[in-house]
Computed example of a mutant assay.
Amino acid sequence: MPSSDAAATSPLLQTLLNHVQLLDPVTWLGPWQCFCCGVLATGLRLSDLTLLDGVKFFLACGLIGPLLTGFSQSINDYFDRHLDAINDPERPIPSGRISLSAARANFTLTGLLALGNMSLLYVITGSLLILILGIAGLFLAYAYSAPGFRLKENGWLGTTSVGIGYCLVPWLLAAHLFSREPGFPSFHLALGVVNALVAMGLITMNDFKSIEGDRKNNLRTLPVLYGERGAMLIAFAEINLAQVIFVITCLLFGYVTIGWLGIAFFVPQLVQQVQLYRAPNDSRLLESIGRNAAGRSLVSQSQSGAHPGFIRFLVGSNLLTVTALTAVSIVHGYWH
């Protein structure tokens, strides 16, 4: 009987794991988070769920995570293989664990499955907006990396496309699939924009890890254009603008208590930003993550070595997520 170690290193399983790594499952969490918050914000309760709602939720989670986001990561790895050879040589393509033809097959199949998924959602709901949102997300994922567009070569266009594709599209998809109101109420539009701005700040910080390769290849990311601290200030401004819009939205819709809660969460976020700006390469938090097996699975050594402060910023900015989850819970009476 083969041992578990032998099974774990079998060629078929290793090939499958390499293809999954190309889809970068960790990156699915952000879009899923936006989608789930968007569902909560519609006021949908467990007692109101129908079998159709369950099917829509399952299909939408597959579309947003493994398919749209996975397609984005896979095609980005393919067209950025020369950059990854410098910035992240452990990735499947530069390390030689996946051939170029296999990588093309990966993102082609993922893109086709995304089209099939959104078409099925269209058949179930009869809403053309589902197709429009899905195709918009797929196009942005392609345009971000592919030649002819290469939005990522412009720091402003690249971060904006990520914010829209990873956060605004999932939130609006949730609002359209589960809201009992037609179209997109202004409340959902505002919170979708809030999440998009957060994503723009995070992707700006994430670009620090590849700043060396980006400079060599003349990519005009924000850290390359404005330097480390200049790009930090841009990221902080985007995150803080998101928090301001969130608070104003709550106050305009009459949720005064939640608005004050947003302000309360804003304070530690500002403190964390000041600390990061003063010591951007403080690696103490990252080292504590690296000592944990789960942490090592989420953060590659090349990422951690390039810009340790990104992890601290990610943790600090997620205070906004706590605010959003708390807000939609109180708004719709999940807490009594």
Rank of each mutant, 00 (worst) to 15 (best):
P94V: 09
G165T: 05
W171H: 01
G254C: 05
L172S: 09
L51H: 11
V55T: 09
P11C: 10
N318Q: 15
I64K: 03
Y78M: 00
T125D: 09
G305M: 12
Q273S: 09
R229K: 12
G295L: 11
A85W: 00
L29C: 01
S101T: 13
R229E: 14
G227I: 14
L128S: 15
F253S: 01
I234Y: 03
N106Y: 02
T204C: 06
V328H: 05
N217A: 10
P308R: 03
H176V: 10
G111W: 03
V331G: 07
R291H: 04
E287A: 15
V193D: 00
S10R: 10
L115Q: 06
R97V: 04
L59K: 01
L225P: 05
S10Y: 11
L112C: 14
M200H: 09
A293F: 07
F187Q: 07
I75V: 13
C34S: 15
A174Q: 03
A324V: 08
G259I: 01
S210T: 06
I135N: 00
Q243F: 00
A146G: 02
I203E: 06
V274S: 08
F310G: 12
W260K: 04
L314A: 14
D207R: 14
G96M: 01
S297E: 10
V271I: 00
Q272F: 05
A60W: 12
G165P: 02
M205Q: 07
H176P: 04
P268G: 08
A175M: 10
A143E: 06
L16F: 13
A8F: 09
P223R: 11
E212F: 10
T27P: 02
S127E: 07
D77T: 03
P185I: 06
W32Q: 07
L173T: 12
C61H: 00
